[in-house]
């Protein structure tokens, strides 16, 4: 354990934590942009700087180990002025189109500029002018909005391990892109969208057929319905419609998803969804009421059971349905109809 004092609060923290981690154990807020607990600390954006008594310069809290006896200020005037300067530099080279940017309300840069009262950069410096890459069917990449925090690059290389994107060039011309400055769709990118999920600004954005503001949505935590990994995800819901999916940083997926989990939800509101029961009449499937359909099924079950016994029935249950539904299916066939002819596609 180490003894620390942050903003006048004395406490003990576990050995081996960074200043940021130690502060968080006490609920002390320090802003971050490039930080992600799952990644190797990067110290790129410096928005998390704090004042450590006796140190010559401000220290990035995300990558500075909390050492015995440290006295730390997270909101001193020097710290606040440093953060303002960082934000001015960032916003100087960032389009101020928050009015129409889909990220508005969920943009860390916007939130921090609000917090620190930054309206503009004010340097009148050179502006970035890159083409927007919308080659990928699921997301767009606008390098002009990128603040070079590197979260996308690190998630891609350290966690997703595809290695499609990296930093290209140096100095003012530094930007994130796929090798050879090609488009996303001409790269090894697998469209997992894990870079999109971590982008703190509007540089990597899901393509949205319908507009929504982040403050209008409700999040519902659930389990992905594709493969057997069982990734945990939040469905973003607006007006009874799923408009996006965000990965959850917990087991088993620890904040990762694949292309199907992240972007493959649009079947939900597809116009071809079945909306009513159908009964075949004169060779054609025709819309029917639930009562008609259920009465027909029940009467057929009774007839066949009388004529041919319970072994004349078979059920294909579903690896797509819930545990509770599979349980009821086998219960229906075993307890009510009387046969063990129940199986599903485990082998297929």
């Amino acid at each position: 354990m180490v003894n620390l004092t942050i903003n006048g609060i004395q406490f003990q923290a576990e050995t081996g934590l960074t200043i940021l981690q130690a502060a968080r154990t006490q609920g002390i807020y320090i802003p971050t942009l490039c930080h992600d607990e799952r990644l190797v600390a990067h110290g790129a954006c410096r928005i998390c700087v704090v004042e450590v008594k006796g140190a010559r310069a401000l220290m990035p809290s995300c990558s500075t180990p909390a050492a015995e006896g440290m006295v730390i200020e997270t909101q001193s005037p020097t710290v606040v002025e440093a953060r303002k300067e960082i934000l001015r530099l960032m916003i100087e080279n960032h389009p101020l189109d928050c009015l129409t940017c889909e990220k508005s309300g969920n943009c860390t840069l916007q939130n921090l500029c609000y917090e620190y009262d930054i309206k503009e950069g004010g340097f009148n410096g050179k502006k970035k002018n890159y083409p927007i890459d919308d080659s990928n069917p699921f997301f767009t990449y606008d390098p002009n909005k990128c603040i070079l925090c590197g979260r996308c690059v690190r998630v891609d290389n350290e966690l997703q391990c595809t290695g499609a994107i990296n930093f290209i060039e140096r100095g003012f011309n530094t930007h994130v892109g796929v090798a050879g400055d090609r488009e996303f769709d001409n790269s090894v990118c697998v469209s997992c969208g894990n870079c999109v999920s971590v982008c703190p600004v509007g540089a990597l954005m899901q393509k949205q057929p319908e507009k929504f503001r982040y403050w209008d949505i409700e999040k519902v935590r659930t389990t992905c319905s594709y493969c057997g990994v069982g990734c945990q995800m939040d469905l973003l819901v607006k007006n009874n419609k799923v408009v996006g999916v965000e990965p959850v940083d917990m087991e088993p997926n620890n904040g990762l998803l694949c292309v199907k989990g992240k972007f493959g939800y649009k079947f939900l509101n597809h116009p071809d969804r079945l909306r009513t029961p159908l009964i075949r009449k004169d060779g054609v499937l025709k819309e029917a009421s639930w009562d008609e359909a259920m009465n027909l099924i029940a009467s057929k079950i009774k007839d066949f059971k009388k004529e041919s016994g319970p072994e004349a029935f078979g059920a294909l249950s579903s690896a797509r349905c819930t545990n509770e539904e599979n349980y009821l299916m086998q219960k229906l066939f075993r307890a009510v109809i009387g046969t063990n002819n129940v199986d599903h596609c485990a082998r297929l």
């Binding site: 066949f304 029935f313 078979g314 059920a315 249950s317 579903s318 690896a319 349905c321 299916m329 596609c345």
Partner: peptide, 8 residues
């Protein structure tokens, strides 16, 4: 005589 197929 009768098959009941759910989600397959």
């Amino acid at each position: 005589k009768m098959l009941y197929i759910m989600g397959e």
